[in-house]
Design a protein around this nucleic acid. Structure first.
Length: 398
DNA sequence: TCTGGGGTCCTAGGACCC
DNA sequence: TCTGGGGTCCTAGGACCC
C-alpha cells in the first residue's frame, strides 16, 4: 500500500499576514515584505503583482527597489506570522492526526490508512481542506498529494496559487519528466549550475540515462539522483523532534569596528538563545560564534564545553572568547563587522537535574531562574545585562 | 543590485583511542 | 623509526531550504 502524503503550502504567506494585520496594505497591489526600502536585507515574500516585476523571495531589497520603485516595502512582525501559522496548524489537525509543520507556511499531513474512506483520490479532501483554511484563517493555500513527501511538495509547487494537484502512484515518472532538475529538493543553484555545465538540466535526461553513464558524469550523486528522478522519496513524517541547534544572529544596520559594541550585541543575542534553551528545557554543549566581515567573508569559531549548559553566563563566557579570537582577524584585515551571531548546538534534554553540579553553579542557576520569572511577567526586555542598557541608550540618542 | 534569519545536513581533516 | 585500520569526537565551512 503506497503512502499518502498531503503537502499544504500557504500562498504568499508573509504578504497576506501583513495585509491582515495592517488594513492600509490590503489593496496595495505591489507589496514587498521583508524590510524597508532603505534597509539592508532581502525580500521575504512578494505579492503576485510585485512578482510580475521579477521580484522574488531571497532577492536583495535594493534590487527589488530598482526593479519596481513604486512598490510598497514593509517589514512584518515575526509574532504575527507565528500566530497565523499556529491557527493554520489547528485547522489542519482536524484532517489528520499527523501534521508536521515544515516551516511557518508549509505543512505535511499523513493520510495513511484512509484507503477505505477515500479509495481513489484525496482531491475531495484537499478541496475541503483548502476551503476550511480559507474560511478559518482568511489565507489561501495550495495542496499537493503524493505517495511521498517529495512528490506531495512538488505537486503543491505545481498547483500554486490556490490549486490542488495529486500525483497518484504509477504516475510519478510522468509527472517528474516535465520538470527541470532545479525543481527537485536538494538541487540548489550551485548544484544545478554544475550539472548544467555537463549538459544535465532536466529530470527527463536523468530518467533515460543509464546509471553507469550517470555515475561517470556526476560521480556519487548519481544513485540518489536517479532514485529521485524515478519518484522515490521519504514517506515518514516525524513530529516533535528535538531541535539540533538554537541560534540568533543579526546583520547590523552599519558596519561596526568597535569590539566593545560587538560584545554588547553578542551578550544580547546570547541571552536570547539561553532563554529559548531554558524555555524548551534543552542543554547545549557547543557554542558557535559567527562573524561576517564587511566584505562578506564569513567566519565561524566553535567551542565544546565540558558540561552542557543553558545559562547565559556560561554560554557568553565561551562566545566572548571565541569572538576575541575571531576579531583579531577582522582587525588584521582592517575590515568592519557586518553580522554577528551565536548558535548553541550539540543539544540534549535538561530533564534530569545534575547531582554533581559544580559549586557556585547553583547560585548562577537561581539568579537565572529569577530573571526568567520577571521576563515571564514583563517580557524579555524587562531584564537586560548592564552592557545592553548602555547600548540601548546610545542607540536612542543617535 | 549588494547580498536576512532561522534552521538542517554533509564533508573533510586532525586528534585520539584501541 | 616509519608505520594499519576503524571508530568517535571535534572544528570549519558549504549547500540548501523557507
Amino acid at each position: 500500500m503506497p503512502a499518502r502524503i498531503v503537502h499544504v503550502d500557504l500562498d504568499a504567506f508573509f504578504v497576506e499576514v501583513c495585509r491582515q494585520q495592517h488594513p492600509e496594505l490590503r489593496h496595495v497591489e505591489l507589496l514587498v515584505v521583508g524590510g524597508r526600502r532603505d534597509q539592508r536585507g532581502v525580500v521575504q515574500s512578494a505579492s503576485y503583482g510585485a512578482r510580475r516585476f521579477g521580484i522574488h523571495a531571497g532577492m536583495p531589497i535594493a534590487e527589488a527597489v530598482r526593479l519596481c520603485p513604486q512598490a510598497t516595502f514593509f517589514q512584518g512582525a515575526f509574532a504575527h506570522y507565528r500566530t497565523a501559522s499556529l491557527t493554520v496548524r489547528t485547522v489542519l489537525e482536524n484532517f489528520s492526526p499527523t501534521v508536521v509543520m515544515a516551516s511557518l507556511d508549509e505543512a505535511y499531513l499523513d493520510f495513511a490508512g484512509t484507503e477505505k474512506l477515500y479509495p481513489v483520490s484525496l482531491l475531495p479532501v484537499a478541496e475541503q481542506l483548502r476551503d476550511k483554511v480559507r474560511q478559518e484563517t482568511g489565507l489561501d493555500c495550495s495542496v499537493g498529494i503524493g505517495p511521498n513527501r517529495m512528490l506531495a511538495k512538488l505537486a503543491s509547487d505545481y498547483a500554486k496559487p490556490r490549486g490542488l494537484m495529486e500525483v497518484r502512484s504509477g504516475w510519478e515518472e510522468g509527472f517528474l519528466a516535465g520538470l527541470p532538475l532545479r525543481a527537485l529538493p536538494g538541487v540548489g543553484p550551485k548544484t544545478a549550475e554544475r550539472w548544467a555545465q555537463l549538459g544535465l538540466v532536466d529530470v527527463y535526461q536523468v530518467q533515460t540515462m543509464e546509471e553507469g553513464s550517470l555515475v561517470r558524469l556526476i560521480g556519487p550523486d548519481a544513485r540518489p539522483l536517479k532514485l529521485r528522478a524515478q519518484g522515490q522519496g521519504g514517506t515518514v513524517l516525524r513530529p516533535h523532534r528535538l531541535p539540533k541547534s538554537v541560534s540568533r544572529e543579526t546583520t547590523l544596520s552599519y558596519d561596526v569596528r568597535d569590539p566593545a559594541e560587538l560584545e554588547r550585541i553578542l551578550a544580547l543575542l546570547t541571552a536570547r538563545v539561553a532563554g529559548q534553551l531554558r524555555d524548551e528545557q534543552i542543554l547545549a554543549r557547543t557554542v558557535t560564534m559567527k562573524l561576517r566581515h564587511d566584505d562578506f567573508l564569513t567566519v565561524t569559531r566553535r567551542h565544546t564545553l565540558e558540561t552542557a549548559t543553558d545559562l547565559d553566563a556560561e554560554l557568553y563566557h565561551a562566545a566572548r572568547s571565541l569572538f576575541r579570537t575571531a576579531f583579531d582577524e577582522v582587525r588584521q584585515r582592517n575590515r568592519g563587522v557586518r553580522l554577528i551571531g551565536i548558535a548553541a548546538t550539540n543539544l540534549g534534554t535538561s530533564a534530569e537535574p545534575d547531582l554533581f553540579e559544580a559549586p557556585g553553579r547553583d547560585r548562577l542557576r537561581q539568579l537565572t531562574a529569577a530573571v526568567d520569572k520577571v521576563r515571564g511577567k514583563f517580557g524579555f526586555n524587562s531584564v537586560t545585562p548592564a552592557t545592553i542598557l548602555e547600548l540601548r541608550q546610545r542607540r536612542r540618542k543617535s
